Amino acid sequence: MTIVDDILDFAKAESGKLELESTDFNLHDMVEDVLESWAESAAAKDLQLTGLVHPDTPAWLYGDPGRLRQILMHLVDNAIKFTPAGEVGIEVACEVETVESVVIRFTVTDTGIGITPEAQDLLFQAFTQVDASATRQYGGTGLGLAISQQLVEMFEGALGVESTPGQGSSFWFVVKLGRGTALS
């Protein structure tokens, strides 16, 4: 079902039919939801799964929590998939704050296999996988990062990666959100 959803989201984004919703949401709850969703998969591989929302980051925001969650889910899925031992973590920080909006930086870091600079150039292309061989060890459609890239751009943001083979990866994205009106 996830594969079908990814293909549909990709097709909608490519045709300009994918839209963001806007609602108040609690950032801490959204990050906690992502961590809870992946806790079992991380535990099955004996990985430590952590999350940190910096204290100066506004808790209540206005935007599309479902699409933010989708981006984080793709990034954490990849981090767990490509990390045989060690840890995967989500870190969230406020980069810019104005009266009306905030720019939030999300970072998903792992101690996994890492990615070569050559392979990093291919990561955000649809249906592209770093290991495309017939005997590839890691599955997937090659759409998660392409969809994430499109969604981040819809949030007026950017998505990138820093990685060293054998030492792990750090995928980050920044998005512009409104200030939430709900009370903590």
Rank of each mutant, 00 (worst) to 15 (best):
I104M: 03
G114Q: 10
E87K: 07
E153A: 12
G16Y: 07
T109R: 06
L159F: 07
D29M: 09
S41P: 00
G51N: 01
D121H: 15
T57R: 04
D6L: 15
T50A: 06
K81V: 05
V108I: 01
L123S: 00
A158I: 11
Q125M: 05
L52M: 06
S101H: 10
F127H: 05
R105S: 12
F106S: 09
R67V: 10
G112E: 09
F171L: 03
Q70F: 11
G16S: 12
V4Y: 15
D64Y: 03
V152T: 04
T107D: 11
L143Q: 10
Y62I: 05
V88E: 03
S170C: 07
D110E: 00
D5W: 15
G63H: 02
Q149I: 09
D64M: 09
G112T: 05
E156S: 13
Q129W: 09
V76R: 01
G51M: 05
G140W: 07
T109C: 05
E95H: 02
T98E: 14
A126Y: 09
D121Y: 06
V53T: 02
D33H: 06
E97L: 05
V99P: 00
E14R: 12
E100Y: 12
V34H: 09
Q137H: 00
V92T: 07
Q48I: 02
W38P: 02
K45T: 10
L20G: 00
H74T: 01
L68C: 04
I115V: 14
E14N: 07
V152P: 11
E100C: 02
H28V: 09
I90F: 13
W60V: 12
A85Y: 05
R136F: 11
E87C: 03
A39D: 00
K17A: 11
S163K: 08
L177T: 08
D6Y: 15
E91M: 06
E95N: 02
S37P: 14
T116G: 07
Q150C: 06
L8W: 14
K81R: 15
D121P: 02
W60P: 02
L159V: 13
H54L: 14
I113P: 02
Y138R: 08
D9G: 00
L52S: 03
D64R: 03
F25P: 10
Q137C: 13
E118K: 15
T50I: 01
S148H: 02
M154I: 12
P117C: 11
V175C: 12
L35C: 01
E156I: 06
A182G: 11
I71G: 01
T107A: 05
A59G: 11
V92P: 01
G112R: 06
E91A: 15
Q149M: 15
G66V: 06
K176S: 14
L20K: 12
F173Q: 10
L61G: 03
L49P: 04
A119R: 01
A132L: 10
K176E: 05
L159K: 04
Q125F: 13
R67A: 00
T50R: 09
R69W: 03
Q167R: 14
A93W: 15
L68A: 00
P58R: 03
T128H: 08
T109Q: 10
I7S: 14
L47C: 04
F155I: 06
A134I: 00
H74E: 10
K176M: 13
E162P: 10
